[in-house]
C-alpha cells in the first residue's frame, strides 16, 4: 500500500508528515503554515508560529503532539478543531468569567461562582481525520517542522503514559462520570444561583417591562397580550391569541382564504366537465341521466387497479405455487 512506494512529500500545499505507529505502519499528518484570515481580525491564533495540521490521530493529546514536534521546537499550545471547550464545567467557568467583566461595569452584584464538576485527565477521542492548530513558541520552529530533512524519515508517534488508553480508559471514565454527591450538590446549587442572577439581570435588560408599551424604531407600538390583567395597554384592544399568531407565522392561515373563490358550477362547461368526471354535485338544476359506469373517475380508478394487477403479474405474484 502506501508504504510500498516512496511517499510524496507534499500534496496540494500541505507537507506530509509521516508518523510511525509501529515498525510497518505509517500514519500521515498533513501540515501547512497557518494563514491568518483577513476578515477575522480577532484570530486567536498567532500568525507565523502556528502550524495547521490535518488528519491528526483521533486519540492524540496535546502532550503527544508536543513530543512529536520535539525536533522542531517547543509547542506552546494545541487547539483542536470543531471541539469548542469540551467540558461543561469549563464552559460554565468561561461563561461566568466573561460575565464578570461586564458585571464589573454594571457594578452592583458579582455573579456567583459555579463550582465545576471535577475533571479527570481523560483522553478525548475525536473523529478520525480531525484538524488542529499547533502554536509554537518560536516562529522558526514552523519552518524547521516542515523542513524536508526532518520529514523524509518517518518519526515514531510518541505515547502519552499519563492518560490511560483502552480498558483502563473506560474504567477511569466510568468512575469519572460518577462524581461524589457533595460536589454535585455544590455544582447544582451554584449553577442555580448563577441562573437566578442572570435571570435578574436579563429582566433588567429586557425590553419587556411591566406596564410599558413596546415601541419599535419606526415609532409603532406593538400590541401584545398582557397576561391575566391586560397590563399592556389598559385593555380595550383585542389582541390575536397565541394560536392565531403561531398559525400565521407558520403560514397556515394565509392559504385558507384563497380557496374556492370561484363557483365551480357557474358556467355550463364547468357543469359538463364535472358531470363527465362523475363527481357528486348538489347544485344541478337540470335533470340529466348519466351512465354511472362510464364516468371518468371510475374509469380512471379501474384503469389504475388493472395496471397495479398487471404490475403484480409481471412480478409473478399470481402464481400460487
Amino acid at each position: 500500500m502506501a508504504s510500498a512506494r516512496p511517499q510524496p512529500l507534499s500534496i496540494s500545499g500541505f507537507t506530509v508528515l509521516p508518523a510511525l505507529y509501529n515498525k510497518s505502519t505509517t500514519h500521515c499528518i498533513y501540515a501547512r503554515v497557518h494563514e491568518q484570515t483577513k476578515s477575522k481580525a480577532t484570530d486567536a491564533l498567532p500568525g507565523g508560529r502556528t502550524l495547521f495540521l490535518v488528519n491528526v490521530p483521533p486519540d492524540a493529546t496535546e502532550r503527544q503532539l508536543s513530543l512529536f514536534f520535539n525536533y522542531a521546537g517547543t509547542v506552546e499550545r494545541v487547539e483542536f478543531h470543531g471541539d469548542p471547550t469540551a467540558d461543561v464545567a469549563e464552559e460554565d467557568a468561561s461563561m461566568s468569567s466573561s460575565e464578570e467583566s461586564e458585571a464589573e461595569q454594571d457594578v452592583e452584584k458579582r455573579p456567583p461562582e459555579v463550582v465545576p464538576l471535577p475533571t479527570v485527565p481523560l483522553r478525548t477521542l475525536r473523529r478520525s481525520g480531525q484538524n488542529c492548530h499547533v502554536v509554537f513558541l518560536d516562529s522558526s520552529s514552523v519552518e524547521s517542522a516542515l523542513a524536508s530533512s526532518h520529514i523524509q524519515r518517518p518519526r515514531p508517534w510518541p505515547s502519552d503514559p499519563e492518560v490511560p488508553t483502552g480498558l483502563s480508559h473506560y474504567l477511569a471514565q466510568y468512575d469519572a462520570i460518577r462524581p461524589p454527591l457533595d460536589v454535585i450538590r455544590e455544582h447544582a446549587r451554584t449553577s442555580m444561583d448563577l441562573y437566578d442572577y442572570q435571570k435578574q439581570k436579563d429582566k433588567q435588560k429586557s425590553k419587556y417591562k411591566k406596564g410599558e408599551a413596546i415601541v419599535d424604531e419606526d415609532g409603532f407600538t406593538l400590541v401584545t397580550r398582557g397576561g391575566a390583567y391586560g397590563k399592556t395597554l389598559g385593555g380595550g384592544i383585542a389582541v390575536a391569541d397565541k394560536k392565531f399568531v403561531t398559525e400565521v407565522s407558520k403560514g397556515k392561515r394565509a392559504k385558507k382564504k384563497k380557496e374556492k373563490r370561484e363557483k365551480e358550477t357557474f358556467y355550463a362547461f364547468q357543469l359538463h366537465e364535472k358531470r363527465r368526471k362523475g363527481a357528486h354535485y348538489a347544485v344541478v338544476h337540470v335533470f340529466v341521466l348519466i351512465p354511472s359506469s362510464a364516468t371518468l373517475d371510475l374509469q380512471a380508478k379501474f384503469k389504475q387497479d388493472v395496471e397495479k394487477i398487471e404490475a403484480q403479474k409481471a412480478k409473478r405474484r399470481f402464481k400460487p405455487y
Binding site: 502506501a2 510497518s24 505502519t25 500514519h27 500521515c28 486519540d59 477521542l125 488508553t165 483502552g166 480508559h169
Partner: peptide, 15 residues
C-alpha cells in the same frame, strides 16, 4: 490508510 487505522484501533483498545 487502512493499516494506520487498524493500528490506531489496536492502540485505543489496549487491554
Amino acid at each position: 490508510n487502512e493499516s494506520a487505522i487498524v493500528a490506531e484501533i489496536e492502540r485505543m483498545g489496549h487491554g
